[in-house]
Amino acid sequence: MSDELSHPTTAELEALVNAAVEKRVGAAFAELEKTVADLKSSVESVREACPDDRTTIVAFSGDMDRLFAALTIASGSAAMGMDVSMFFTFWGLSALKVRTTYSGKSVGQKMAAMMLPGGPASVPTSRMNMSGMGPVFFKMLMKQKNVQSLPEMMDMVQELGVRLVACEMSMGVMGISREELIPGIDYGGVATYLGDAARSKVTLFI
């Protein structure tokens, strides 16, 4: 009787071994699952901290030459496979204008509308503007060199899918309404710009 107790059957031994193995494997598996979950969340946080392949440009200047630089970098970035955001604020809004309206504007805003360029085709140059002679001169030189004009560059960045954002705060100050700007663009404020800039590899203020 005591012999029977001290000599378990093969089946009983197998069951014991299996139970022990299952316990160890189960524990190891649980450990592994936890490690994988930890790794996944680490990768996720690293990915969130990493900038996207994106270029964000603040187009602050309404000067032909500066807008030209901003639009060249924007179209180049898009051609390099990057996402691109352009945030147009203050004088830069001129690049987005397609018409000028006066109704519903204050006297000051009407004056601003009269004095500001009606669109990218009529912006001044930052230097050698010479009361509007400079842009005529530069447009002639650019044409000779087969360089695209600002309105053509604006069309190109739209075709390339560049995100165009108009600053609503400066629109409000200058009394610029949405109907005066290119249709289908986005509108926003500083957080809109920073939201894009914070996940960009390239950010520029031009």
């Binding site: 060249t72 179209s75 898009a78 051609a79 390099m80 496979g81 087969n146 360089v147 695209q148 390339l160």
Partner: peptide, 14 residues
């Protein structure tokens, strides 16, 4: 030919 920066790169990309 005859096209200036950034147009060649944009065309290549397209």
């Amino acid at each position: 030919a005859g096209l200036s920066c950034p147009v060649p790169i944009v065309r290549i990309s397209r």
